[in-house]
Design a protein around this nucleic acid. Sequence first.
RNA 1: GGCCCCAUCGUCUAGCCAGGUCCAGGACACCGGGUUUUCAACCCGGCAACACCGGUUCAAAUCCGGUUGGGGCUACCA
Length: 544
Amino acid sequence: MVQEPVVTRFAPSPTGYLHIGGARTALFNWLLARKTGGKFLLRIEDTDQKRNTPAAARQVMDDLRWLGIGWDEGPEVGGPNGPYFQSQRKEIYDKYIKQLINDKKAYYCFDTPDQLQQMREKAQAEKKNLIYPRPDKFPDDKDVAKARAQGKPVTVRFAMPTTGDIIVSDVVRGEVIFAAREIGDFIIQKSDGLPTYHFACVVDDELMGVTHVIRGQEHLMNTPGHQALQDALGFRSPVYAHMSVTVSDSGGKLSKRERPKALRQAIKALGDLDTQKLAGAANISVAEVEEFVKGKNTPDMSAVDAMAEYLGIRLPEINVVDFFKSGYLPEAVVNFLAFLGWNPGDEREIMRLDELIDAFDLGRLTKSNSLFDRQKLIAFNTEHIKMLPDDRLLGRFRDYLKAIGSPAAGGDDKLLARLIKINAGARTLADIEKKCRFVFIDNEDVQYDEKAVKKVLLKHDGLAILRAVGERLAGLEVITPETVEKLLRDLAGERQVGLGKVAQPLRVSICGTTVSPPIFDSVDVLGIQNTLQRIKNTLKKFGT
RNA sequence: GGCCCCAUCGUCUAGCCAGGUCCAGGACACCGGGUUUUCAACCCGGCAACACCGGUUCAAAUCCGGUUGGGGCUACCA
C-alpha cells in the first residue's frame, strides 16, 4: 500500500521509565512515518503536575534511542511546532479554551471533588454512568470571580453534542458508533489551570500537523469526545488506529505492578528472611520491608530492584530498560514488539528494522489482544544475536556490561569479541556474560559449585584426571584451542574414557561450575598460567 | 452496572473483507529422537485450534444474529 507521507507522534506522559507497551505504540507510529517518508514527532504530555518528573522525560528519550526510534521533531531536536512539552504551551491552550467559552461550547464549573463523587455514586446506584448535568445557564465571569473568592475549584467543561451519533472511523476496527449523549460533558481545563489530556492532545495534534494517530485500544472510548472537540474548534480529525492491548503472561494487563508483585511472591516462597539485611540492601526501613511483604505498601522501583538483586530473584521485565539489563538486543525487542498486533502477511518473522519499515502496513494491524510471551522474545533474541554484525554486537555487549557493572566491562575489544565468538548460540547477552565471568576473576576467587565438585571432581577419578591434565598442560609448548583439544583427546583415549570425563574436571577447576564456553577455547582465553594455577588450587583444596 | 472492543493450536499468528483450492499454514513453547566436551545452538520427527448455538448458501473458519468467554473505558491520569 503506497501512501502519502504522514505525520505521526508519540506522546508519553513522563511518569517513569518507558513501559514496553508504550514502546510498542511509539514503534508503530515511527514505522508508519518511516514507511511513508513522513515525520515522527515526540511530544511530552506533562500536564499532570502531581505525577510527572523532569527526570522521567529524559529516561523515556534514552529508552527510545536505545530502541533505535528517533524523532524528527521534539525535545532536544527542536522543530517548527514547539515547544514540545505541554507544560510550556499553556497560553496556546488558554486561547482555545477562551474561544470555546465565548462560543458557548464550553463552560465553567465549581464542583468540589466530593460533590462529583456523590453524583457518581448516585448514578452508579441507578445503574448508569454519570452524565454531567449541564446547567441551563453557563456561569459568567462574575460567577467565576465569586467562586474563586469563595475558594471553590474552577474547572472548564466541554459542552458535548447531546443528540445524534458520533462515528469514529478507525483503521483497525472500522466504523464504531457512539451515541453523543452517552459521552457527557468532560473537563478540558483542570482547577490548576492546565488542560486535561483530552484537550491538550486535540489542540497539539492539530497545531503540529499530526495526520495519523496510532494508540492503544484504551483510547477508543475517548475518541468520540476528541472528535467533537475537533468539530467545535474547526479542526480536522486525524486518521485513527486503535491497536490491541498487550496482556501479560501472568494474566491481566501488562503493568508496572508486576515487578513488586513477583518480588513479594518470591519472598514469600523463600520462607525465612533477614529483613534487616534486606532493608539495608534496599536502603529502606525494616518496617517498610515488612509492610511490603504483607502486601500493605510498595516501595519505589529502585528499592524493589535492589531487593530483587540482593535476593538473586529475577523479576519480569516491564520497562524497556529492564530488557536492556536482562541482556536483550534492541533489534530483537523491536522485532518482537512489531509482531504483537501486526505481521507482514507472509511467513517471515525475524526481521531487521529496515525490513520492518519496508513491510509495515497499517491495514495489517490485528484486532485482538495479544499476550506478551517472554519465551518467544528469547527466541527472537537468539536469532538477532546470530545475525547482528560483529562490530554492532560488540558495541551492544559493551553497553550491557557497563550497565550491569560486570567485571568484564574492563575487557578490551579483542578479548570481548573472542568471548562473543566462542559463545555462538547464546540466547542473551546475560548468558554470555555469565559464562565468561571466570576470565575476569582472580585465580583465588573461583567459587566452586558444591554439586559440580561432587559430581565431577569427587567421582570417576576426577581429581586424578585433573592432575594428569595439569601435568600435560604444563608441558605443552604451543597453546591454542587445537593443541589443547589434541591433548585432552589423547588423554581420554589413553584412559579409555569419553572426552567429557576429561573435560569436565578441567572445566570445574577453572570456572567452578559445569557450564562454560567450549573447554578448549576457555583454556586458551584464560591463559595457560592461570589455568595451571587454578588446577593447582583445585587439587590442593579437594585433594586428599 | 453502563458503554465499547475482541474471539483460529498452550502462545504469537496466516487464512476472513472479495464463501469452495483449509480434514486449516508458519513460528515459539512442549514431547520424542539425533549431534555433542558442559550449557546454549543445531538437525529430524510429533502433538495441537476454527468458543458455542442458530441462520443464509449447493458450499462457511470465512457472511448474519444470538449466547458464552476475555479485554478496555467509566478521573480535575494520560
